Simulated scan of single mutants.
Amino acid sequence: MKKKKNKAYLNALLIGIVLAMLGTFIQLPYYVTKPGMATELEPIIDVENGFQEEGEFLLTTIRMGKANVFSYAWANIAKYHEILPINHVRRENESDEEYSNRQMYYMEDSQESAITVAYRYADKPVTLKNNGIYIMGIVEGMPAKNELKPGDRIFAVDGIQIDEHTQFMDYVGDKKEGEVIEISIVRNGEEKSVSVALAPFPTNPDKIGIGIELITDIEVVTDPSIKIDTEKIGGPSAGLMFTLEIYNQLTEKDFTHGLRIAGTGTINLEGQVGPIGGIGQKIVAADNSDVDIFFAPNENGAANSDYQQALATAKDIKSDMKIVPVDTFEDALNYLASLDK
């Protein structure tokens, strides 16, 4: 009798282990997001001979992963966890490589805008230089699929130097279906040439091309020089905080006032701050990191702005962080300058 009970127990245990493994490894067509962390920017950004600061500027992150049975179930009951359908995160037929490449481009674009705005406000030399074009994605069923990859840098077509994506589009626009173009690229540091024929797009037969999504590779040249190490950070939402950290290192005055200052929001070349997703989760992350001040995109006073959502979250979690609305980099700078009074 005892042997039967032991066998039943072992069978039940084995079934439980199998179910647990299935629940862990079977992925659902969703992503789960939750509060991440607040990361200090000073170790990431290094302006040559930059000034030191007593406090810290921090970027806030969201943790995101593909949902399995357990994470999906937990996200349904855990506060400030969110479930996103896969098509809200990934483009149709977008590969892991293409998604990663797109996120890194957004981060690089955010860095370039942040550097440009900060140096201009600090009255330091900064110029923008085009270094060809990058492939962001490739259309399924188009000729480029067999010859090109996301991340390839195109620097010439049929021997003609290409500096920006509009040049490439204009050149291809004058071609006809079936014509072959020779594309010179750099892939993993090596130059090579590939021949690609033009064809109609599957969803738009009147449009002819090779099936690539392009962006211009912009290099920001500065004096003093700057280095940014963000290999593991993707997306554009740290633009405002990047700009503040860079500007603070460029100027003798320390705008941190010895405080821990976080925030979120995109930045463009005009210094305008744009909204992002997951503001509530970023408020939680900042509060968990003992942040004193949090800058949130105001969206020109919109009723459901990131700022309003940030206020609601801070109240809900009983945070004593100061939530500050900003529409521009200058708004954030003026607020920090006002702390002297």
Rank of each mutant, 00 (worst) to 15 (best):
N288H: 08
T230I: 12
F155S: 10
P125E: 01
D290H: 12
Y335F: 15
I115V: 15
I261M: 01
N76P: 03
A38Q: 05
I133R: 00
I233Y: 15
E112M: 08
N204M: 08
V117D: 07
N304V: 12
E140C: 02
T264A: 11
L214R: 06
D152T: 11
F51Y: 15
H165V: 01
Q272C: 04
I293V: 13
E252S: 14
L198H: 06
E92M: 09
G274H: 06
I323T: 04
Y9P: 01
G235N: 05
A12M: 08
D327W: 02
A302C: 00
G159W: 13
I246W: 02
N204D: 14
P275H: 04
I228G: 04
P202C: 09
L244A: 01
S305E: 12
K129N: 13
Y134M: 14
Q281D: 03
Y119V: 14
V157R: 09
F242M: 11
N76T: 12
T328C: 05
G50T: 04
P202S: 05
F294E: 03
L13Y: 07
S71I: 11
T256W: 06
E112H: 10
A78D: 05
A75Q: 11
E97H: 03
G277C: 06
D123P: 00
M321P: 06
P200D: 03
M142H: 02
V89Y: 03
N300V: 02
Y30W: 14
L259T: 08
F294S: 02
K341R: 04
E182Q: 13
A199K: 11
V291R: 00
D254A: 13
I181W: 03
G209R: 09
K322N: 09
I267V: 14
P200L: 09
Y31R: 04
K253D: 09
I183P: 05
I208N: 05
K124S: 09
M107V: 14
N49I: 01
E54V: 10
A118S: 12
K7V: 13
E82K: 13
T266C: 10
A312V: 07
V18W: 03
A67C: 10
N87I: 01
P29N: 10
Y105D: 12
G141C: 07
N334E: 15
S71Q: 10
V89T: 08
L311N: 05
L333H: 07
R260D: 04
P325A: 08
A114S: 12
N146P: 00
